[in-house]
Design a protein around this nucleic acid. Structure first.
Length: 275
DNA sequence: ACGAAGCCCTGCAAGC
DNA sequence: TGCTTGCAGGGCTTCG
């Protein structure tokens, strides 16, 4: 579900509420996520203080004052929210699988209807964890350059949309923002990536960066499940040009937006604006 | 090494 | 109304 902007929105939302607090206990109501939540999660985290909540790709990294870092992935339908004061005693719903209880009564709750999310604990440097080790550059950091993308595209035989959604190439670009970035770049999603010209990678890199930054500024995109730490939705949905707009007029030229499946995923584009 | 496909799970919308 | 079918924002794993 959540792509990079939604995960970053979540990170920014929860970090100020739990930074510096100590974990007192973890309540696991349903351990059956993508992988079973470790039985000893509460034992291994109890007493630990949260030093920072960081993000790598779509993984949230909860750094502690011990050797452990907790890794949380929201999968397709996960959200984290903060309960405290008046809401602290709110009863969990059927998909509220985990609560972290902090010193002072703050509670962090994971809701994940589809249970594609994950909660794990790693020792030592979390970036060396096997799930994170092979990830490509962050799109909002300096390693993500047009030349880098061009070089990655030259040796591959996939469509441009599949290229930018490949986490070995660049992380955090999911199905929504891939379609949007390609619209803003004027590139058809089904174009073979090695047939995209070098100058167009400058446009594409900028479009990816811009659409992700804009979406973060709007608190992400809420289609169905995503809510922020306080329960509010993200407001980027109003800015979507093509995603989910099949048959509706292109905002630029009025032509009907088309939908087609590329690599198992729905892709949206304007047949006039994108070539 | 790369690329395609399968699979994990629930909820919802569309179609009959 | 009630059933069936397909589809959904991810990504690990397996297979070719």
């Amino acid at each position: 579900m959540p792509e990079l902007p939604e995960v970053e929105t979540t990170r920014r939302g929860i970090e100020p509420h739990i930074k510096g607090l100590r974990i007192e206990a973890v309540e696991i109501r349903n351990p059956r996520l993508r992988w079973p939540v470790p039985q000893n999660l509460s034992d291994s985290l109890a007493g630990r203080q949260i030093l920072a909540v960081e993000r790598r790709a779509k993984y949230l990294l909860f750094r502690t004052d011990g050797s452990q870092t907790m890794i949380v992935h929201l999968g397709m339908s996960g959200s984290l929210f903060i309960l405290k004061d008046a809401t602290a005693g709110r009863a969990p719903g059927p998909h509220d699988h985990l609560d972290w209880l902090f010193s002072g009564g703050t509670r962090l709750r994971l809701r994940d209807p589809r249970r594609f999310g994950a909660v794990l604990v790693t020792e030592g440097e979390p970036l060396a964890h096997y799930l994170l080790r092979h990830l490509g550059p962050e799109p909002l950091e300096s390693g993500f350059t047009p030349d880098y993308l061009y070089e990655a595209a030259r040796s591959r035989r996939v469509t441009i949309k599949q290229l930018i959604m490949d986490s070995r190439v660049v992380v955090g670009v999911g199905n929504i923002y891939a379609s949007e970035a390609l619209f803003l770049s004027g590139i058809r999603p089904g174009r073979a990536c090695h047939r995209v010209s070098r100058p167009r990678f400058h446009v594409l890199r900028d479009a990816i960066v811009n659409v992700l930054q804009e979406a973060i500024g709007q608190g992400g995109t809420t289609l169905r499940d995503f809510v922020r730490e306080d329960g509010r939705p993200g407001y980027f949905r109003q800015q979507l040009n093509v995603y989910g707009r099949s048959g509706l007029p292109c905002h630029v030229c009025g032509t009907q937006v088309r939908q087609r499946r590329i690599g198992q995923r729905s892709s949206f584009y304007c047949p006039i604006c994108q070539q």
